[in-house]
């Protein structure tokens, strides 16, 4: 696979698209963790997830992309917005969204980034994946899920049920813990 790989530069067409989407995702993610308005953070999260979904499409994982859009953009962000509402967070800009150890956090994050980027660049400098459209479509993926991975899938459904019950128990005030 790596023997006939083209050079890193110039990037091919899909690569350019992916890099643009990646830049959008990283930039909106930065805005998520730096913005001064809670609701804006949630909205920037939508942008980030959307860009990632585009990235999945470029990587030929189309089913994952749609699921990403459906669950993340559709469900998770809505949930988060509900949470923001229910905790009576201020809608406008608020100053105190960052805690005191911001600089330590930035240091750790930059160090993490440096370590990770260094490692993956040294590790996968020459790795090349030829893109074959259709390999991530619903049909092969569904077949794989219900054929090979059916047991984890069922376990996952139990987990979802447990999470559902747990969320209900946690959020209802009239259910007390055992004394």
């Amino acid at each position: 696979m790596t023997s006939q790989a083209p050079g890193l530069w110039p990037p091919s067409g899909p690569e350019v698209v992916f890099l643009l989407l990646g830049a959008v995702a990283v930039g909106s993610a930065l805005l998520v963790v730096t913005t001064r308005q809670l609701v804006h953070a949630a909205l920037w999260l939508v942008v980030c997830f959307g860009a990632l979904a585009g990235g999945y499409l470029v990587l030929t994982a189309e089913f994952v992309a749609w699921v990403q859009v459906l669950i993340y953009v559709g469900a998770v962000v809505v949930l988060l917005l509900f949470g923001i509402m229910l905790t009576r967070a201020p809608i406008g800009p608020s100053a105190g969204l960052d805690s005191g150890n911001r600089w330590a956090a930035a240091l750790v994050a930059v160090a993490t980034a440096a370590v990770l980027v260094t490692v993956v660049v040294t590790g996968f400098r020459s790795a090349y994946a030829p893109l074959r459209p259709g390999q991530g479509a619903a049909e092969p993926l569904g077949a794989s899920v219900f054929r090979t991975w059916v047991l984890p899938f069922e376990a996952l459904s139990v987990l979802l049920l447990a999470a559902l019950i747990g969320a209900i128990v946690l959020s209802r005030t009239d259910i007390r813990g055992r004394e």
């Binding site: 150890n101 330590a104 240091l107 750790v108 160090a111 993490t112």
Partner: peptide, 15 residues
């Protein structure tokens, strides 16, 4: 008691 500080230390150590 600040859990964030704990996690910061943890990750810094990990790095």
């Amino acid at each position: 008691g600040n859990a964030q500080l704990y996690v910061t230390g943890l990750l810094a150590g990990l790095v």
